[in-house]
């Protein structure tokens, strides 16, 4: 997928993956990979930026003798995601236009 388009989607995809419950790095990647190609190095800045924006919180839990970092979506994160779904309608209109002219 083209980079620019992908970037905008990734934030929403990551947030969406947290909607059903808190998750951690490894599992997020596993959940997302079927949908979009993402590397570990791409995910980290996304998670960090979302955290800095207040869209998610983080906390640590012990797991097998080591600390695992969990990410959880916040109210702001949900709003962000909702806004994205609203914007997506515009995107669909654009796509329809493109497709109509492409044929």
């Amino acid at each position: 997928m083209e980079v620019q388009l992908k970037k905008g989607l990734l934030n929403a995809i990551v947030l969406a993956s947290l909607m059903r419950g808190d998750s951690y790095g490894y599992r997020i990647i596993q959940d997302i990979t079927p949908v979009v190609e993402i590397s570990e190095s791409t995910l980290y800045p996304i998670l960090r930026r979302l955290e800095l924006q207040g869209a998610l919180i983080t906390y640590s839990r012990e797991h097998n003798g080591r600390l695992r970092k969990y990410y959880g979506i916040t109210r702001e994160g949900r709003e962000k995601l909702f806004n994205f779904t609203e914007e997506w309608r515009e995107l669909v209109k654009a796509y329809d236009f493109i497709i109509a002219n492409f044929r």
Binding site: Y24, G25, E40, Y44, L47, R66, R68, K69
Partner: peptide
Amino acid sequence: VLNYYDELISD
């Protein structure tokens, strides 16, 4: 950053 990768690799 280091904790992120440490955890990921361990997982």
